[in-house]
Design a protein around this nucleic acid. Sequence first.
DNA 1: CAGACTAGGCAAACCGTTTTTTCAAGTCAA
DNA 2: TTGACTTGAAAAAACGGTTTGCCTAGTCTG
Lengths: 356, 356
Amino acid sequence: MAEAAGVSVTTVSHALNGKGRLPDATRRRVQEVARELGYRPNATAQALAGGRSRLLGLAVSQAEDEPFALSDFAYFATLMSAATSAALEHGYALVLVHDDDRGEQIWSQVNVDGAVIVDPIPGNRLLEAVRERELPLVTTGRIPGDEDGYWVDNDHVAGMRSMLDHLARQGAERVALMTTPPKTSYTADALHAYESWCADTGVEPRIAWLDGGLTEGSGYEAATSLLRGDDPPDAIYSSLDRPALGALLAAHALGIAVPDELLVAGCTDSNAGRAAEPALTALGLQPERIGQLAVELLVDLVEGREPARHHLHVPTRVIARGSTRRRQRAAVSPPAAAGAAARRSRPGRRRTPSRP
Amino acid sequence: MAEAAGVSVTTVSHALNGKGRLPDATRRRVQEVARELGYRPNATAQALAGGRSRLLGLAVSQAEDEPFALSDFAYFATLMSAATSAALEHGYALVLVHDDDRGEQIWSQVNVDGAVIVDPIPGNRLLEAVRERELPLVTTGRIPGDEDGYWVDNDHVAGMRSMLDHLARQGAERVALMTTPPKTSYTADALHAYESWCADTGVEPRIAWLDGGLTEGSGYEAATSLLRGDDPPDAIYSSLDRPALGALLAAHALGIAVPDELLVAGCTDSNAGRAAEPALTALGLQPERIGQLAVELLVDLVEGREPARHHLHVPTRVIARGSTRRRQRAAVSPPAAAGAAARRSRPGRRRTPSRP
DNA sequence: CAGACTAGGCAAACCGTTTTTTCAAGTCAA
DNA sequence: TTGACTTGAAAAAACGGTTTGCCTAGTCTG
């Protein structure tokens, strides 16, 4: 390239990067030759010389005992896609990192300028590796016990409350929560918000723990045991959508009509929820927004700009669908109390299970 | 590092990479020091010196007029996840590439050693960019019109036939296909297989084109027009799952019972399909296998090994669920012809649409 | 005991940029 | 005319490794 233009590599570099002292004529000439030759500076060499690779890592943290695949959740896929776009917009590319034994070694194999970790769990190996290297880090969701870093998060507490209020407005009096033991800030928020909402409204908390993976299966189990217990709930909220779908199936199997006898809702919107029968009411988290903001925040850090805010909140919204549709009867009476009364006066709500 | 171990950088490099002539004692000593210091060779420098970045690009090609997001399909997410794992297994990392105006420039910003392009469309800009750079390339799905390259693909022709046979065995006589105009090898295969199956079995082809995106909405439209036409189908197969879910909704809206009056199936398994009511029969494509094999093939190419086979086929399988469950009546009679006869003798299959 | 060979390890070249420094030539003022 | 300053561009030093080639001892071999 340098020879082709009849100048030194220095001049080429200066011409192409708008640096140095060059007359416009030379600059243009070099650029012209570069264009003709289809010359592109070697990215690796640039990275080595410049000390920045223009590569960002995107990792999904996860607990060892909950081996769910990335692909299980539309949430992650959407976030990832948005993050890729945002990165590209700023001239960065995204490297995918898995949180397994091999994932850790990726930081050795690739020089990333910074990392986004989704739903971090304290002590996670990827998190530790990032810290050890003192890489700029943005998390989506906070790191429980260490909320000082840079993060983008939904306001899950507010979100949970608005969902619970929605269920109450639809006539629910005995709202149960299905969730996992809190490891991420998200599940902790959900749990606390639920408990405080229960305290505020005088509802007795009913919590069913999901174990055995965040799948339809575990939701089915948890919902079944809730619905079969004494004093079963008249609404079930799951902190993830797949178990909520399982709850739908469980209700069906027990002959409990949704939404007439039981309201069901889940967090995270998905095709699966939309396609369910009845369609699943969801707490929308706007993962595309989260992915975008996380990358933009990270880019600020990488490029040495002090971000205006260290923490960003993305609003949630209740996406009401068939699974929590208020029955006609309830619709005519004023919201909370009256709806609850109408519900209470209904005759025994259990039918014989269609299959036991 | 070199000083710490009291040797030259050459020796460090040799010791850590198992090259050069060094006594085991020295090698071990250097490795020991490296471990203590937590020394990791700079990946960028290695890439520059070695000429290989250990980075692979993963791109999803797409037609300009069909702006669907990556996240729309569990298929892509699963493939991507598997590809990441496989890459890591061989010491590579995956860089995500979007097929938009900015996506193209990524090849300038990052030096990838090779690329996987999912469902390539001839003339696509990413494809052209990869070719121009003479990067090793593996596609999942073939490039229509140029099938000589390296690719991993399902046998969609066989898959389509087995699905159609399945529908026929369940009593379908008038199987319609909902699909997009063929741009990828996959949609072309599906179309051809359908047409040849129709020719073989004497079924008259009925094709509804999906436009306006590969969504539930477009499937709803297409299915509605099929079901409202003269001589409506008694089975609908969609070459993607989301439109199939739309078909389910359309049938419901028209008061047509699935599977009793209409069988519905789609390609690509997903949570959404599993959660639908009735659960959607799907042609499983094993995207995890495809992603894995594509990366392994690409790694062979990148590392200069001649792969045993240039083309790999991944089997498909019919995952039969409620949406194509044979009615009891048909179950007792021998497969195809008798099932069809039983179906034919049924009384008029249309009910009044519940909403018009 | 000389010559050839082997082992061990280092120095230097190289990868392709960016950045800093140097330098020659031209311009201007005194 | 000379010194100071400006302009344009190249040379050199990094960046942090890998690779090639060379050198020195020590060990065989005849």
